[in-house]
Structures are given as structure tokens and as C-alpha cells.
């Protein structure tokens, strides 16, 4: 009896020790994770924080040497109001919105259809073509802008904001197609076969089965196309020079930096306004975005 009790106690002690060591290991792992996360959060959030703070300051406060530069002591929206009233800024914003909407729509229509045919219709050379699509994505954008400049010049589209609606899809379509190929490939083959037997043609199959099922992937690709178009800097810089044709990214710095005069308050206010749409869209679609990327990654 007593020996049995001793054994039971020993077992319980071992179990406790194991539990404790597991719990402490977990605790240390969590400390490590938090420390790393804090460093990253500080690194990534300080610039936007400083941007927002500066945008709320008057020019006098920005150039003042005294006081804590990290806070706006007399916060004002005057930078935003002046900016919104500037006709140039209105052009920039409208142009960016217009080009982005067109880019997203065109890229998604092309890449969804391309991905569906490459992933599912299995025609001769489809897998080579799929690899080819991905390879085009590997060509750096900075190498392409000179030949593209020639093409746009030939088309008479230099200094016309619509040239971007032609150029951006060439950057967005390959990657979006690649994401969508991965996503469509992860959909079981039986689903198309069931749809075929139920009486669907390829178009109905795409519209009624594939697009709804692949919605997370489509949202991920849409966000990518949006980011390509909204944040592009090099192409508008190279192809546009009139203020009324300009988009936000280049417009802000070319309009608000004159020689060595930097209108910091307005530049920061413009940056906040320019960053707002992607932040809002990301915030709403983040869950879908992550689901789309991971699923494409593991099953594609």
C-alpha cells in the first residue's frame, strides 16, 4: 500500500515538474515574442505617428526649435482644409482614384479569366504559359519603364494620366493571375465536374462556382492590384508632368516641394489623406487577404 502511494506521489511530482517546465518554456517564448513585436511596432508605427502629428501642426510650430516635437501642442486642421481646397490636390486625388479603379477592374477581369483557363481548361501548353505569366512578374518594373516610355510615346499618351491605366495592369495582371491560379487549383476537380453534369458551361462555372468559392483569393488579388496602382511612384514620375494629369504619389512632392521650400505640414496632411484609402480597405478586408494568401501558398 505504502509503496503504491510512494509511486503515485513520484508520478505526480514528475508530472508537475513537466507541467511547470512546459509552462515556463511557454512563458519565455511569449516574452520573446512580445519583445520582438514591440520593437517592430515601434519601428513601423513611429513614422505614421509622426506624419499624423506633423500634419496637425502649423508651419510656425513645425519650424519652432523649442517644445516636444512628438506632439502637436495646438492641433489644427488648417493643413487639411487648405490642401482639400487646392485644385491641384483635387486633380491628384481624382486621378489616383480613377486610375486605381480602372486598373483594379481591368486587372481582375483579365487575371480571373486567365487563371481560370490556365488552371482548369487544361489546353495544350497551359502549364508552360502559367509559368511564363509568373516569369513576367519577375522582370523589375524599373527595367520596363524605358521601353514602355517608347511605346506610350508612339501611342501619344505621354503626359496623359490614362497611360497609367494601360501600364499598371501589365504589372498587376501577372501576379494576380498567379495568385488566382493557385487559388483555383485548390478547388477540388469534382466541383467543376459536378457543375458540368448539373448543366453549367464554362462561363456559368466561372461565375457561379469559381468566383464565389475563390472570393478570398480574389480579394487578395484585388488588394494587390489596388496597392500597385495607388502606390506606384516611378511610372507617374516618368510619364506625367502637367499638374492636372498627375496622381497623388508624385503630385504631393512635386507640388508641395518648391526648390528648397518644403511645406511639411501640407506634405504630411497629403500623406495622411493618400494613405487613408488603403488603410481603410486593408482594415476591412484583412482577414480575407490573409486567408487568400495562405491558402494560395499551401494548396497552389
Amino acid at each position: 500500500m505504502s509503496s503504491a502511494t510512494t509511486t503515485a506521489n513520484a508520478v505526480a511530482a514528475t508530472r508537475r515538474r513537466h507541467t511547470r517546465s512546459l509552462a515556463s518554456q511557454r512563458r519565455w517564448a511569449l516574452y520573446g515574442s512580445y519583445a520582438a513585436l514591440v520593437v517592430f511596432v515601434i519601428m513601423f508605427l513611429i513614422p505614421p505617428f509622426y506624419t499624423v502629428m506633423t500634419s496637425l501642426k502649423t508651419s510656425a510650430e513645425i519650424s519652432a526649435q523649442s517644445g516636444n516635437p512628438w506632439f502637436a501642442h495646438n492641433p489644427t486642421l488648417s493643413n487639411f482644409i487648405e490642401l482639400i481646397e487646392m485644385p491641384d490636390f483635387q486633380y491628384f486625388f481624382m486621378n489616383s482614384v480613377m486610375i486605381t479603379v480602372v486598373t483594379v477592374v481591368v486587372s481582375m477581369v483579365i487575371s480571373v479569366m486567365a487563371a481560370f483557363s490556365l488552371a482548369r481548361m487544361g489546353f495544350w501548353g497551359s502549364s508552360t504559359l502559367a509559368t511564363g505569366v509568373f516569369l513576367t512578374y519577375l522582370v523589375p518594373a524599373s527595367l520596363l519603364f524605358i521601353p514602355l516610355f517608347q511605346i506610350l510615346g508612339f501611342l501619344g499618351l505621354i503626359n496623359n494620366v490614362w497611360c497609367l491605366a494601360l501600364v499598371y495592369p501589365t504589372l498587376a495582371v501577372p501576379f494576380c493571375t498567379w495568385i488566382m491560379i493557385g487559388y483555383f487549383s485548390s478547388i477540388p476537380k469534382e466541383l467543376d465536374e459536378a457543375a458540368l453534369i448539373d448543366g453549367a458551361g464554362y462561363v456559368q462555372m466561372l461565375l457561379k462556382i469559381f468566383i464565389p468559392v475563390a472570393m478570398p483569393g480574389i480579394i487578395a488579388a484585388t488588394i494587390f492590384a489596388f496597392t500597385v496602382s495607388w502606390g506606384a511612384f516611378l511610372y507617374p514620375m516618368a510619364y506625367l508632368y502637367s499638374m492636372d494629369q498627375m496622381v497623388l504619389t508624385v503630385g504631393i512632392i512635386s507640388d508641395l516641394v518648391r526648390g528648397d521650400v518644403f511645406q511639411w505640414g501640407k506634405i504630411m496632411a497629403a500623406s495622411v489623406l493618400a494613405a487613408a484609402p488603403p488603410v481603410i480597405i486593408y482594415a476591412f478586408l484583412m482577414d480575407y487577404y490573409i486567408a487568400g494568401l495562405t491558402s494560395g501558398a499551401t494548396k497552389g
Binding site: P188, E190, E193, A194, A195, I209, V213
Partner: peptide, 8 residues
């Protein structure tokens, strides 16, 4: 089908 192939 074996894996049902229901439209999810």
C-alpha cells in the same frame, strides 16, 4: 462523387 463535391 466520393468527396461529395457540394458547392461550399
Amino acid at each position: 462523387f466520393q468527396n461529395y463535391a457540394l458547392y461550399p
